[in-house]
Design a protein around this nucleic acid. Structure first.
Lengths: 251, 251
DNA sequence: TTATAGATTTAGGTATGCCGAAATTTCGCA
DNA sequence: TGCGAAATTTCGGCATACCTAAATCTATAA
C-alpha cells in the first residue's frame, strides 16, 4: 500500500531511537557501522562499510553524507565514520530487533540457529515496536540471542557478558562457549552436528600454527574432539568464568 | 543490507505463485486488484485502484502496464484490470500471508483484532514462505482469520464459507456473524466492547431507512441491542446456517 | 623528499515509483 | 447525433539509492 522507499521525512532529530521514519537503507548503514565496532573499536572505514554492505564505495560516500545530514553519524572527508548518540540509539534499536527476532524464531517457531539470520535481517525493518516488545515479553525478556550476542534493552542499555570473552584463536585455551558469530550458517550447522552449543565447555588441545587447524575437545568427554579451521575458530568466543543467564522463560 | 527497492528481476513467469522476486509495490497492486473483486465481481477500474492504493491515477496506469509486462494482469486501454492466473496465484499468496499473520498475531501474541491489520500489511511483504508455513502449522492450519475472512491454502485453494453470507444491510435479518471487514479499527473496537464477535448470533430488530441506523440484537439476550450506522452495518456479514470451523488448534 | 598505491570523493548515469498537468478517450444524456 | 464531464493515458519531473569511471587526497616506501 505504500511506496517501496519510505520518504524518510525530516529526520525527527530528537526521536527516541526508534526506527520510525528512517529508510531501510539508513537503518542498515547505521546498524553496520555499529556492528563493525561492537567487538573491536577501531572506527569503520568507508571501504569496510562498502564491503559489509556489498555496495560500491561511492554509494557509501553518498549515504554517509545523508546520515550526517540526519544527525546520525559524524564524518570528516577521507576519515572513518562514527555514530552520533542519536545514531547509536538507532543502531541499538535495530540490533535489538534483529536479535530478538532471531531468538523468537528459534524458541517459538523451531528455527535452527543457522536459519534465523536472513529472516531477521529482513523483518527487523518491518516489525513494529509493539510487536518487538510482545515478542520480548513472550520470551521473558532474554538478554542474549541464539548465538550468544547480547540483546540491547528497549532503553538502549546493553548487558555485557560477565566475563572476558576470548576468541578461541586468540588466547582462549579453555572455557565455555559464550558467543558464535552468525555470519556463517555452514559453521553453525557443523557445530550443531557436533553438539557444540552455547555454554558447552571446550578446551583447545592442539594447534598447528600458520593457518593450520585447531583441535578442540568438546564437553568433558576426552573422546569428543573436532578440528576447526582458522576462520571457524575465530568465530567462536569462550568465557573463562561461569556461563551466562541464557533465555529466561520464567514469564 | 539490501537496496530498499528490490530489483524485481526478470519476473520468473512460471514461478509457483510465491512472491519471490516481485517488488513490494507489485505485490500490493496485485493484492488490491484481487481484494476489490473478492466480495463482488465487478472488474476493477483504474481510478478505484488509485483510490485504494492512495496514489495518483497516472501511477496506476504505469504500474498496471508493468503488471501486464510481468504477465500478472490483463488490461486493454480505457478498460478495467483483471488478473491473469499467474497474478491470481500471487494475489492469493499475499492474501494468505496477510491473513495468517493477522491470525498469528491475535492467537500467539495477544493482539486485538483491531490492531493487526497495519502490522500484517507491512510484514506480508517481508516474511519468508518458511515462516508463513511454520506459523500456519503452529496455529493448526486455520482456514479463517480473526475477521472471518478465508485464508487461502498454500496451494491457492480457498475454502469458501459453507453458507451464503449476507451483509446486514442488504438482506440479513438474522444469523451468526461470519465476517467483519477489517477496514475500520474503530468499528472493531466498538464491536469488541459490545461483545459482538465472530459466530455471535445477531438479529436485526429495527431499521430506519434512508441512511438511518440499524438496531441489532446481539446474542440471545433481548436486552443487548446496539445501533449501527449504515457504513458499519455494511461491514458486518452474517451466515444463515451454522457457524464456521474456527481456528483449529488440534495440532 | 617524493613517487605512487590505495582509499575516498565527485561526476554523470540507471532503475523504480511517485507526482501534476495536459492530452486523449469514453460514455451518458440531451 | 453530438456535447461535455469523467475517466484514462501521456509527458516531463522528482526522490531514493545504486553504479562506473575519473579525479583527488593520504600515507607508505624508496
Amino acid at each position: 500500500m505504500s511506496p517501496t522507499s519510505q520518504p524518510s521525512g525530516p529526520g525527527a532529530p530528537g526521536s527516541p531511537g526508534s526506527p520510525g521514519s528512517d529508510s531501510t537503507t539508513v537503518q542498515d548503514y547505521v546498524k553496520v557501522i555499529y556492528s563493525a565496532t561492537e567487538w573491536q573499536d577501531k572506527p569503520v572505514t568507508m571501504s569496510a562499510l562498502a564491503a559489509r554492505l556489498q555496495v560500491a564505495n561511492s554509494s557509501v560516500t553518498e549515504m554517509v553524507r545523508k546520515l550526517v545530514g540526519l544527525g546520525l553519524a559524524r564524518h570528516e572527508p577521507y576519515s572513518p565514520v562514527e555514530l552520533t548518540p542519536s545514531g547509536l540509539r538507532l543502531a541499538l534499536s535495530m540490533v535489538r530487533r534483529h536479535r530478538l527476532l532471531e531468538t523468537y524464531l528459534v524458541w517459538e517457531l523451531g528455527y535452527g540457529w543457522d536459519e534465523v539470520h536472513d529472516e531477521a535481517e529482513l523483518l527487523e525493518h518491518t516489525v513494529s515496536d509493539m510487536l518487538i516488545e510482545r515478542m520480548s515479553q513472550r520470551l521473558g525478556h532474554p538478554v542474549r540471542d541464539p548465538h550468544g550476542d547480547p540483546i540491547p534493552a528497549a532503553d538502549g542499555t546493553v548487558q555485557q557478558p560477565d566475563a572476558h570473552l576470548i576468541g578461541l584463536l586468540d588466547d582462549g585455551h579453555r572455557g565455555t562457549v559464550a558467543r558464535i558469530s552468525d555470519a556463517n550458517p555452514d559453521l553453525l550447522r557443523y557445530l550443531d552436528s557436533e553438539q557444540l552449543k552455547l555454554d558447552t565447555a571446550v578446551e583447545v588441545v592442539g594447534h598447528k600454527p600458520f593457518g593450520g587447524a585447531l583441535t578442540v575437545r568438546v564437553g568433558s568427554d576426552p573422546g569428543r574432539e573436532i578440528d576447526l579451521g582458522d576462520e571457524s575458530a575465530a568465530a567462536v568466543w569462550v568465557s573463562t568464568v561461569g556461563s551466562h543467564p541464557g533465555c529466561n522463560l520464567e514469564q
